[in-house]
Amino acid sequence: MTTSTAVNAKASGTFVIGGDLTVNRMGYGAMRITGDGIWGEPKDIEGAKKVLRRAVEAGVNFIDTADAYGPEVSERLIAEALAPYAKGVVIATKGGLTRQGPNEWLPVGRPEYLNQQVEMSLRRLKVERIDLWQLHRIDPKVPVEDSLGVIKRLQEQGKIRHVGLSEVKPKEIDRARKVVDIVSVQNLYNLSDRQHEDVVDYCTKHNIAFIPWFPVASGKLAKPGGKLDTAAKTHNATVSQLSLAWLLQRSPVILPIPGTTSVEHLEENIAAADVKLSTDEWKAIEHSAK
């Protein structure tokens, strides 16, 4: 089950973002199609484009990126590989984090900066409207009402279809929703890092897409011989596939976006939708993760 030329993201089921964007739940995160430290060009530009094209060919119609990936590199490569986009392909991007060097990130939520970044993302992605724009981080120096106020105006102008948030807690989502409709939340979440259980539950209750970044379990839980490794072998799967399959069954609003620069690994990730465990098996794995 690890890889297959017949894999299709449709097997992961669908979710409707914002009430009108239907996507297959297994998506693709385009952070890694850049250089080391998410900085600069990737070592293999054509290889990165090949992965993007194969993702869409295999039924992935939800691709997540950000203006800060590269910076600018990921958005540009997506457009070079996929534009004009196939019908139904949803490109989500983010703004609000600036880059000072490899692995360095600084939030900037000033309205004029976010306005500029949306315009630049539109240009790089070669679209007239961004399907899903997400505030990469709330800037502690800028009221979220100010940051999202300009985004709401851009939405009203037809330049943004839907708005999401990243790395937030329920109270922050509530506050943001008073400014603009929030249709997605993107937080760190996986089987071995579940600090945002309250956010998953909030999103499930309100039918808001929850997009887990870093979706694959790591550390002690994922080590060879551990509970996850043993269960994976029992089901002829990899630890990564089991991690993704767990997310798909955790909540119907979860949209995993595993990233990779390898076509083989991409297909392995998509095939995770075919991994099925019983309720008792999932409970045993979740218990071992506590």
Rank of each mutant, 00 (worst) to 15 (best):
R194E: 10
V180M: 10
K169M: 14
R177C: 06
P212T: 07
G164Q: 11
E172N: 03
L135V: 04
G219C: 09
A237N: 10
L135H: 01
Y202I: 03
V239N: 10
I182V: 15
V168N: 06
S192R: 10
M120N: 03
D198C: 04
R124Q: 09
E167W: 02
V200L: 04
T230A: 15
S218Y: 11
V142N: 02
S240K: 04
L125Y: 10
D198A: 14
A176L: 13
S121N: 07
N190W: 03
V185K: 06
V144G: 03
E156Q: 15
S192Y: 10
V200Q: 03
L188K: 11
L191V: 06
L135C: 10
V144S: 01
P224K: 12
E119L: 14
K227C: 01
V163M: 00
G226Q: 14
K141Y: 01
K126Q: 13
D174V: 12
L125V: 11
D131Q: 13
D198G: 15
E197H: 13
A222M: 07
D139Y: 02
E197G: 01
P143N: 06
W213D: 01
S184I: 12
N236A: 14
P170W: 12
K227D: 08
V239R: 08
S218M: 07
T238I: 05
L188C: 07
C203F: 05
R194A: 11
R137W: 03
K178Q: 15
M120Y: 01
L154C: 11
I211D: 09
V180N: 08
